[in-house]
Design a protein around this nucleic acid. Sequence first.
DNA 1: AGATCATGTAACTTACGCGGTTACTAGACG
DNA 2: CGTCTAGTAACCGCGTAAGTTACATGATCT
Lengths: 141, 141
Amino acid sequence: MKRNSRLSLALHTLSHMAGDPDRMRTSADIADHAGTNPVVVRRVLGKLRKAGLLYSEKGHSGGWRLAKTADSITLADVYLALDERLVSGSSDVEPSLCSVEFGLQTRVAEILEDIEHSLVDRLRHTTIADVHPETCRYCNP
Amino acid sequence: MKRNSRLSLALHTLSHMAGDPDRMRTSADIADHAGTNPVVVRRVLGKLRKAGLLYSEKGHSGGWRLAKTADSITLADVYLALDERLVSGSSDVEPSLCSVEFGLQTRVAEILEDIEHSLVDRLRHTTIADVHPETCRYCNP
DNA sequence: AGATCATGTAACTTACGCGGTTACTAGACG
DNA sequence: CGTCTAGTAACCGCGTAAGTTACATGATCT
């Protein structure tokens, strides 16, 4: 896979689910689609489940499906559920630095924090329903 | 050190240089200040040199100093010189994916690209001179 | 009840990036 | 020429994250 794989995997899966919301999909099926591993899928989707975006069930007819309608799930919901923090991750300013360094870190951290908020705001304006316009011939031939 | 260490190191060093622009500093001195290694310093500052922000000289009285005035170097100059791409790093959209995945990647990549530009715009409004207001008792006791 | 299928995790392996380190070459200056 | 510096290549060590194996838990079917 590639960078930001968790977010990619999450969005890809949710987007496909939006096209057929009642169908239960197993982590094995999803993993095949995404070219990854069932355990990895369960790890990522587990976070979405804790955030209330997905519903999962064990047993014979078990698997995963959306817990909400696709148009009520924004990209920001997914992003935040995964604790991604693409921009300002771990911007904790070290306390015992020289004043020059401290001022710098504070200034940069402020800017990054603002940008992080801008990103979430932007993501909040797109829903899963917006992003899956057509069916996929590759995944559903 | 910590995350974003290259950017931190670069800004910290430039900021100190702004306080005494004519003084030549060796990579060993800078490394001592920053708590890192001379080779690491030369790696990072080398990129700033290629971007025209720093000047370096070999030999007895050699070392590093600013190549421009501190108020003509913006945080964006430093950020771009380092090829950091904090936000939209490697947002190359894979070509042979299913249409759902392709649409998603494109949409997310657009947003991240926009945010990346916002970040650079923000960084462009602060110069090295802005950010080093006082002297540092820790580094210059 | 027992078999089977799925999630839910823990534990380990592998891959990769990056800072740190060593060792060397290339100039500059005394 | 000797010494000091940058400039670089090559390697080590560590942390992170994906991939993998293994197993426990629970739901469903026969």
